[in-house]
Every structure is written in C-alpha cells, then in structure tokens.
Design a protein around this nucleic acid. Structure first.
Lengths: 233, 233
DNA sequence: ACCACAGTATGGTCAGACCATACCGAACCA
DNA sequence: TGGTTCGGTATGGTCTGACCATACTGTGGT
C-alpha cells in the first residue's frame, strides 16, 4: 500500500470550526464578559453553516462557562459572554468521579494543598475576614449536617476568595461542590463538631493576625480532624 | 398579581434532561471508561426526544472529556466513555484567559503551588525518575525555544504524574498547555538556559533521594529563575 | 483461503418548520 | 399626558426528515 499521499486525517467537524471562529473573534476583538454574540441564525449565515452546528458550538461554550444563553428579546437576550469557570469545573469533577477515573482521595489531597496555600496567602495579604466570621456563625446556627456543611463550604471558599487568586478560588469551589455528599457523611460520622469549630476559630485568628505559617498549619490539622481515616499514614 | 402559584422558573432544557439521564445511567450501571453508550438515534428514541437534543448533550459530555465519538461501524464506533479531563481543563483555561477573566499571574501562582506539592510527594513516594531524566536530555538536545519548552513541559508534567495524583497531574498538564506561548517567550527572554538546567538536575536528584523539602524548595527557586519578573515582591 | 462488493449502522450536516419567551412599539383608552 | 393593551418580532429551544461520509460485516464468488 502507498502511504505517501497521506494527510493527517484529523477531520475537523463544523462546530469545531465555529468554535475556532468565535474564539478568534473573542481574542481579536477583545470581547469580555457582558458582551453579546450574534444571534444563532445570524452566526450561521455569516459562517455559512447550519444553525445546528452553531448550536453545538454554543453548547460547548456554555459548558465551559464562557457564554450564557437567554431566550426572548432585548439587550439581555441571546448569547452573552460570561465568566463562570466554577460550574464547568464542578461538572467535570463530578462526572469523572462518577466514572471512577478519579478517586475521592485525590480530590481531598488536592483540596488539602489548595487550602493550605489559600490560607497562607490570605494571611499574608491581611485579607478581610468578615465573610469568614459570617460563615462561622452560620455553622453555629446550623441544625443539620447538611446545613453545617453548607456554611463550612462557605467558610473555606471565603478563604480561597481572600487569597486573591480567582483560579484557586474556582477550583476550591468546584472541589467542595463535587464532594458535598461526602462531606455531609463525614460530619455525621463525626457527630461532635466542636473540634471543627475550634479549628475554624484558630484559622480565622491566624489569618486575622497575618500569620501565614500558622494559618497553613491550622488548616492542615483541621483537615486531619475532619477526615481522620485519610491521614493515618 | 397572584404569585402564590409560582414555581421556580428554572426551565429545564431537553438536552439537560438527556445529560441527567446519561449521568444517572453512568453512576447506576457503574459504567467506566471504555464502555459504549447507545447510538444517538437509539438514545433519542429511548428518551423520547429528538436526535438534536441528544447530540447537544453529547457535545457537552465530549467537552467535559467524558465521551469520545467515532463515526463508522463496529465495536469502536459510536460514543465511548473516556477519561480525558486534560483537554477540557485546557480549553477552559485558554478561553478564560482570552476573556481576561483570569490573569497569567494567577495561573503561574497556581502552577507554583502545584509543582511544589507534586515534587514533594514524588520525592516522598520515591517515584521512578526515568521520565524526568528523559525529558532532561530532551532539553539538552533542543535547538529552539519551542523545542526546549516542549521537553520542559514534559519534565514538569512527569513530576506531577510521579506524585500519583491524577487530578493534580491533569491540572498541571492544562496549566502548562494554556501558558505554552508565555513560556516560550520567557525562555527567549532569558537566553541562557544553563541555570534552568542546573535547577532541573537539582530537582531530579532531590526526588531521587526522597528529600521532599529540598525538592519543594528547588522547584520554588526554579520558578523564580524562570519568571523573575513575577517574584519581585 | 482469499478477495471484491453490496449492505448497514454509525456520527455529521443541513434545511425548514413550529413553539415559548420576552421585549418593543403602536394604537387605544382615561 | 399618561397608562394599558395587544399585536409584531427577534430570540433560543425543539423536532422532523433527509442526505452524506465513514467504516465495519457479511456474503458470494474465485
């Protein structure tokens, strides 16, 4: 057989072309969150493709948290550029956990790494801790494990926000989101949350005083308290 | 106006239903990578929706790196469950960098965090370092900045792989992927790569000897050498 | 045993229709 | 003048049915 005339058979599907065009337009025209994309029918005509292909490209962009589609008419209708990496990351983690291509252990180790980093940086930046305090009182008022975990998540995400790194914060949020059920079980297994409360206070005070090393250490020990079974090595 | 009969106007689009059904089937039936999903037409009939809606759901799953579609016929054709979080994460980062909803600084700080963690864990695990050595000689043989960066990327991703955490490794890969151009410019600006080479050797030896702290420190100083402008605070 | 060829299941693409939504604006009252 | 009503219209959401390219499957002939 003669393979000399081979071309890399990378077939490129129409919606991928559309994606490339839209991405090109975003970078070249400097579009940012809030700007509107042309309507589906209009885009289809401009690019010489069917509306189905445009729609499939839109689904991709929506999945990646880059656009948000609104029906109806007016300035807010149509495909608007947004910036929601959180939901995209959450979906990604949740599905891959479901596929068993990721293990909870890996997620928690990643969370451990991020939380230490975020706490240290929040402390160094002398960040505002009012959101942390609010989450703390939310936990005190919680009447169920679900409610407790909700405010606990808010507490830890607030640390990530306070670190000032939006990528870290987005990853943190999606990590917590994908392990919500697991966290609830962990709290129920634990029963008494007073140890966790003491940990939280310790973290908050370390951040408040700007003690980065102490904040990181407090976070690390907190996670060991919350998930004792994973830290016995 | 009577608001009593309000229902949460969260309209559910058909393809989202399809997504939920597929995800349910994945978790309930314990499907994993390699298993095949029903054909588009068949799925459409089973769920009582049009093929378009099924296809839009497929695009989402493909975007998230969960399925891979192949045309034709036979055991390998159709929608097959896969496990490719890397490309999904890369696309996500690239688009959000383009939208200016993330800054390079945030990406590099994240990389800094991950690399330290990965190097320390690879050292603790006494991981195999042959891939690291191979990447190192690749860098030595490189004839251009692009080529150098390619092997440099392989080196750092190999550390992440050696850490044993697939989530960390996937994030690492996509971080490097999204900042490839930036890295090439950094190397060109630097000119001389001998300092980087010494850093790499130091990292490799630390991992080899199982010295976690030294490995983390070596990585940290290496990044300071590679991106001096970002570490002057 | 091999090969050629028709059959067929698959995803990829398109055109066109219809629906629900929500804004826009003109006509119509008060 | 001011408000209200109601039809027009642009938008995304959905469906149908068709056709194409691809790549395996099986059959029949050699």
């Amino acid at each position: 057989m003669d393979d000399s005339g081979w071309r890399p058979v990378k077939r490129t599907r129409t919606f991928e072309d559309v994606l490339a065009q839209i991405e090109r337009r975003i970078t070249e025209d400097g579009l940012t969150a809030g700007d509107r994309l042309p309507a589906e029918r209009q885009l289809a005509e401009q690019l010489g493709v069917s509306r189905s292909s445009v729609r499939e490209a839109m689904r991709v962009l929506e999945t990646l948290g880059v656009v948000s589609s609104q029906v109806g008419r007016g300035p807010d209708a149509g495909a608007v550029l947004t910036s929601r990496p959180d939901t995209a990351l959450s979906d990604l983690l949740r599905l891959h956990l479901g596929l068993a291509s990721l293990e909870m252990r890996e997620v928690i180790d990643t969370r451990h790494m991020i939380e230490q980093w975020a706490a240290a940086h929040a402390a160094s930046a002398q960040a505002d801790t009012s959101a942390l305090a609010a989450a703390l009182s939310g936990m005190d008022a919680a009447k169920s494990a679900e409610e407790f975990v909700e405010h606990d998540t808010a507490f830890h995400c607030a640390i990530a926000d306070a670190s000032g790194n939006r990528l870290i914060a987005a990853i943190m949020r999606s990590l917590r989101d994908s392990m919500r059920r697991y966290s609830v079980e962990a709290v129920q297994r634990l029963g008494d949350t007073s140890i966790l409360r003491a940990d939280h206070v310790r973290i908050l005070e370390a951040v408040d005083r700007g003690e980065a090393d102490e904040a990181a250490k407090a976070v690390s020990e907190h996670l060991a308290h919350a998930y004792p079974s994973l830290f016995d090595h």
